[in-house]
Structures are given as C-alpha cells and as structure tokens.
C-alpha cells in the first residue's frame, strides 16, 4: 500500500471484485436497468410484516446470493463491511446476524457501498483478510418513514426531490482473481456548503463529490479522460449538472465520460421520480447489476466509482442544520499495468 498525495491510497496488490449480487424492488424492476439485476421483487414487503424486516431480508438474501455465486467458501470470507440508512444500521445488523462472519457496521449514508469497498480492499491488500464481503441496502418505504413522512400522507414531492432505491447490492472482494481490480482508493472529506433543503440532496452532496474527484485527480496525476467512465452514486439530475459545472471551474472536464446512478436507474418521465434515484442501494445495485457486467465484458476497462452521501437525519434538519455531504471514490480497472 502506498499513499499518494493528500488522501489517496494506491493498492500494491490490487484485490479483485470476485462477484457481485443485486436484488431490487418492483419500481427498480420496471426501470431501464431491470434486466441487469439478479432479482426484481414483486412487492416491497417480500412476505415480511414491516418495511424494516423487508429491508433486512433483502440484504440478507443478496449477501447469501453473492456468497453462493462467488464460489468462495463462507469460511474463507474473513470480514464483512456493511451498512444502510436506518438508525443504528439495523437493516445490515439484523439482516446479517446469522451470517457468522466478523462484522463491521459502516455508516456513510448513501456512500456506504464505496466506503465498504474502500475499507474491504485495504484489508485484503494488507493481507489482513483473504476475502471480504461488502454490502449495503436501502428501502424506499423505510427511508420515507424515518426521514420524511408516512407513505399515506398526501403531500407533493418538489421537482428536486429524489426517490430512494429499494434494493441491496453486495460484493465479494478477494486477493485471488483476474479482476476487475480495485487499484486506488480515495476516501473523501466531509464537505458542507450550507444547503438546508432536505428535498435537494443532490445539491447538498455535489460539492463533496467535486472535492473527492478533484483530490483524486491531483493525488494520482490522472486526468478525467484516463477513465472510460466516472460514476457518481445518487446526485440525480440536479446534482449531476452541478458536478459537471463545478469540476469544469476547477479545470477538469468530465462531461464526456460522466454518469450518475441516480439518473440511470429510473426513467424520469415514465416513473415520475423527479430528480432521480437515491439511497445506499442506488450505486450498490447499479454497480453490482450494470457496471460490473460492463467491466467483465471489457466494454468498460477503467472506471472511477464515487459514492455520495448526505450525513443528515430528521432531527438535524428540524434543528435547522445544513446537510454535510461526503463522497468516497474507488478506481476499478480490468488490468493492472
């Protein structure tokens, strides 16, 4: 492992993303990426009595699925890094309580998936683990209940609001394998530009994404064009545009190879999702479902995965606090030079 510049870590023995799995809810299953997911659920409860139990089941089944698909024996998976949006990360801890793998609960709001990949890949690179499991989940209904209003309340969603993705994405990262490799890790700083509107998370998180992107380019000396695709987590239409423009003011042009999972996962017009998708699962399922297959098929060879999170809760927004954002990045490449 080697430190580059201010924040970036270059992995000496880049770990391989051995396998991924994704399960999504019905709305995501009607979206443009439906065919890439492992499983699309028929209903949001999935046979459970509460939204929280349903979310736990989704992450549990996704993790079971990724372990089975990867072919790695469960006793060779040394640690698990997982987190979600619900208070005290209950979806992960309750969903994975029977997993029997040492567990790190991770909270980075919607950046949790990449935060887990950062930590997991460093563990593997440092030989502290042979294989690690990284997982995350979110659920539209449990998130609305905790962060916003009861589902039956007849309120209007403003055009800047985003739709929490129901689903779970999980990955097994191991020391042996032929890629795609995690080559660089850039953990992000907390950036707060004073946005208070809980219905405009994209704008609240965009400055953090810009900060992490610029830092990554400076630390590594890479240009945006080094990557086939730069992918942010859940900035949505509003946040995506802000990131494009703000990176340009700092002298980096990412317009040609930049996508946002919140924009990709839903059809804005048909599904009425306003500014796009959000939630831990947004980048979790979009990477596990779509981008991982693109890497495997070598349609994409170098991507920079930047997950963004809004570190807020219902209490802080009632107290008039602004919304701190965070963004973590990992570079994933199909070959190591």
């Amino acid at each position: 492992m080697e430190r580059l510049g201010a924040q970036t870590i270059k992995l000496q023995n880049p770990p391989t993303i051995v396998e991924v799995a994704s399960i999504v809810g019905p709305k995501e299953g009607q979206g443009p990426l439906a065919k890439y997911f492992d499983q699309c659920l028929e209903d949001e409860f999935w046979g459970e009595k509460t939204w929280e139990k349903a979310e736990s089941k989704i992450i549990k089944e996704t993790v079971n699925s990724v372990i089975t698909k990867s072919g790695v024996p469960a006793d060779q998976i040394d640690y698990c890094f997982a987190g979600d949006l619900l208070n005290q990360c209950i979806s992960s801890s309750f969903g994975l309580r029977e997993l029997n793998i040492p567990f790190f609960g991770v909270f980075g709001a919607c950046s949790t998936f990449v935060e887990s990949l950062c930590l997991g890949s460093i563990f593997v690179d440092a030989k502290a683990a042979r294989n690690v499991l990284c997982a995350t989940s979110s659920h539209f209904c449990s998130a609305e209940k905790q962060f916003r209003f009861p589902l039956e309340l007849g309120n209007q969603r403003p055009p800047t609001s985003q739709w929490t993705v129901t689903g779970s994405g999980a990955a097994v990262v191991g020391e042996n394998g032929s890629g795609p490799y995690i080559t660089m890790v850039t953990p992000g700083k907390i950036v707060d530009m004073g946005i208070k509107d809980a219905n405009n998370m994209g704008a609240a998180m965009a400055p953090a994404a810009v900060d992490t992107l610029i830092t990554h380019f400076r630390d590594t000396g890479r240009k945006p064009s080094y990557y086939d695709m730069i992918i942010t987590g859940d900035l949505g239409y509003v946040g995506k545009e802000i990131v494009c423009e703000l990176t340009e003011t700092k002298g980096y042009n990412i317009k040609n190879n930049y996508e946002d999972c919140g924009v990709l996962i839903f059809d804005k017009e048909k599904q009425d999702t306003h500014s796009g998708g959000s939630g831990c699962a947004c980048i979790g399922v979009t990477f596990s479902g779509y981008f991982f297959k693109q890497l495997k098929d070598k349609k994409l060879n170098r991507i920079l995965l930047v997950a963004t999170g809004a570190l807020t809760n219902a209490t802080t927004s009632q107290q008039g606090e602004s919304i701190p954002g965070i963004a973590h990045a990992v570079a994933i490449e199909t070959s190591i030079n």
Binding site: E44, W51, C141, P150, E152, Q271, D272
Partner: peptide, 9 residues
C-alpha cells in the same frame, strides 16, 4: 384495517 402501502408514484 389498512396496511401500509407504497406510493405508486
């Protein structure tokens, strides 16, 4: 009587 349901839109 009622059970929570998701908003369809």
């Amino acid at each position: 009587i009622a059970k929570p349901k998701i908003k369809k839109q």
